[in-house]
């Protein structure tokens, strides 16, 4: 399998180092879960992989021309904005094909008139299905009910089978177990 990403002894942070050293490699079609206690730096590692956080030590080698998609825990600011779910997907180039029935019927509604869970899933879908080789997801199961988590798990596998590499940060152990091919647990002072 093609290696998309190679991370060697990475220590990342914002103003100062905030993660233990991390080593990982990711191939196309692979899903890696990143778990660990709160504050250990899981989201910071993801941000470093996306080029947002600062790299204090180690290195990140990305396949040349790699297209990234990043879902953060920030909620898209759509309150008061007349933007429909279909328009949101068009913005990132994501296809609505494969959306669960409980969202397909609501695609033409304004996002600010959907429930928090519906809005979150659409915002997540827009990133997950954007044209990208490497998809980075930060706590994607937040705000999702059991049906949403089940649907997401199935579609992560579909997305990986289509050739994308996926890194998932999550505190949801059952989801990580079901969705990921490998799990990397971060502990303070220990990268693996």
């Amino acid at each position: 399998m093609t290696s998309l990403l190679q991370v060697e002894a990475l220590v990342a942070g914002w103003q100062q180092p905030a993660t233990p050293p991390v080593n990982l490699s990711l191939a196309a079609g692979e899903i890696i879960g990143l778990t660990g206690p709160n504050g250990v730096g899981k989201s910071t590692v993801l941000a470093a992989l996306a080029g947002r956080a600062q790299v204090f030590a180690g290195r990140i080698v990305r396949q040349p021309g790699l297209r990234l998609a990043l879902q953060t825990q920030d909620v898209p600011p759509v309150d008061g904005l007349p933007l429909s779910g279909r328009e949101l997907l068009q913005l990132t180039g994501a296809s609505p094909q494969g959306l669960p029935p409980w969202l397909i019927d609501r695609l033409d509604q304004r996002l600010d008139r959907l429930s928090g869970g519906q809005r979150h899933y659409l915002a997540l879908w827009a990133i997950l299905h954007a044209p990208a080789d490497l998809v980075l997801l930060d706590e994607p199961t937040n705000n999702l009910d059991a049906a949403g988590v089940q649907h997401l798990t199935a579609h992560l596998h579909d997305r990986a089978r289509a050739g994308a590499g996926i890194v998932v940060v999550s505190h949801d152990a059952a989801f990580v177990e079901a969705a990921c091919d490998r799990v990397l647990r971060l502990e303070a002072g220990n990268g693996e």
Partner: peptide
């Protein structure tokens, strides 16, 4: 399109 994308997904906009 870029104005909308930068507003809704500023991180996605940057990393692309």
């Amino acid at each position: 399109k870029n104005l909308l994308l930068a507003h809704v997904y500023p991180d996605f906009f940057r990393i692309r």
